[in-house]
Amino acid sequence: MRGLVLSGGHGTRLRPITYSYQKQLIPVANKPILFYAIEDIIEAGIHEIGIVVGPNKEQVMDTVLSREWDATIEFIEQDAPRGIAHAVKISQGFLKDEPFVVYLGDNILREGITRHVDDFLSSGVDASILLSHVNNPQQFGVAQLDEQGKVMRLIEKPEHPPSDLALVGIYLFRHVIFDAVHSITPSWRNELEITDAIQWLIDHGYSVKASIVDGWWKDTGKSEDILEANTLVLDDIHTDIRGTVEDAIIRGRVVVGEGTVLRDGSVVKGPAIIGRECTISNAYIGPYTSIGDGCEIVGTEVEGSVVMEGARILDVERVVDSLIGRDALVERGNSLPKGHSFKIGDNSVVRI
């Protein structure tokens, strides 16, 4: 069996960060979102993985290849965002005749996919789609099932949903899916939709099974989703202090990386994670906060936030529920006339 991870797209809902950074590389609990997908696939016993890349392809490739994996990884370029089914279509040479899993690279699934892969391989069905119960099915693609749990119909963001079962963004297919992706036509978005390909399977008598997710699942398409996923992942961490604690207090489950110094009366209250080579001085790091490598936090309270590598936050009192990009500087100004001075890119949000 093979794995196909999608790491393309422009990430427009996460701008301005995604102007310069691929959305699947944004960290959750100091790990790129994309890595959660790769780890899930390997954990399921799959060791041949294709990654579909688009914008910032070199960035994705460099990040993935920066660590060793128990898998052979091949990169497949998609020239533009043309839909999930198009990504499957252009990956046919890599996937060959083997069954495979498609995993959207901006998803995080707490339970992993091992159970779903095992069920699919033993069931003999032609396709299996992961579904999750949601409170707002009107905002998702939704599946309608028959009494045996087979998928009858897929509906995109229905006004009157037939169920509360949303498509998670993880799909398992056999080779017949290529007949489907070669048969369907582009949607109004000029994309080959995976829902159309799955519906083609259903309409042509192929068996499509529902596989219901236990535990939480997050699609990290927006900044608030990143923060919520960060909260959910940090709930499972265990204390691991590898840095230096000088005149500082640590409470609860906290991870501190090598070379990091906590000093000058700083307080860290978990669950929280601080990366390597950071300086935390006269600061409060509150629950559900992730601080990336090489950050400097001085004279500031930070809580419920994701601070990416190299960022500096200096004497700005309190930062909450924020997503701070790489090498960003947030500081208090002391010059006259007093006021707020900004350098703000397109699609930014500032709350004062």
Rank of each mutant, 00 (worst) to 15 (best):
residue 316 V to Y: 02
residue 61 M to K: 12
residue 217 W to V: 14
residue 317 E to M: 09
residue 40 D to I: 06
residue 126 D to Y: 08
residue 9 G to I: 04
residue 40 D to P: 00
residue 88 V to W: 03
residue 252 G to D: 10
residue 109 L to N: 06
residue 268 V to W: 08
residue 200 W to M: 06
residue 199 Q to I: 12
residue 313 I to C: 02
residue 154 L to A: 06
residue 204 H to R: 11
residue 24 Q to H: 15
residue 320 V to I: 14
residue 159 E to P: 00
residue 314 L to S: 02
residue 245 V to L: 00
residue 257 G to Q: 11
residue 129 I to F: 09
residue 178 F to N: 03
residue 35 F to P: 05
residue 21 Y to P: 00
residue 72 T to N: 15
residue 285 I to A: 04
residue 254 V to R: 08
residue 317 E to A: 10
residue 345 G to Y: 13
residue 130 L to N: 05
residue 217 W to R: 10
residue 40 D to R: 03
residue 77 E to H: 10
residue 345 G to A: 13
residue 311 A to T: 01
residue 328 A to S: 12
residue 350 V to T: 12
residue 12 T to D: 14
residue 171 Y to C: 05
residue 196 D to Y: 02
residue 301 E to W: 02
residue 316 V to T: 10
residue 54 G to W: 07
residue 211 S to A: 06
residue 26 I to F: 05
residue 261 V to L: 12
residue 256 V to K: 01
residue 48 E to A: 05
residue 261 V to I: 11
residue 166 A to H: 01
residue 351 R to T: 15
residue 234 L to T: 04
residue 183 S to V: 01
residue 220 T to N: 13
residue 86 H to N: 14
residue 29 A to K: 00
residue 162 P to N: 03
residue 236 D to R: 06
residue 210 A to D: 10
residue 220 T to F: 03
residue 9 G to N: 09
residue 335 S to R: 10
residue 215 G to E: 10
residue 108 I to W: 09
residue 277 E to R: 15
residue 161 P to R: 03
residue 250 I to T: 08
residue 253 R to I: 00
residue 109 L to A: 09
residue 38 I to A: 04
residue 247 D to W: 09
residue 173 F to I: 00
residue 262 L to V: 03
residue 46 I to Q: 04
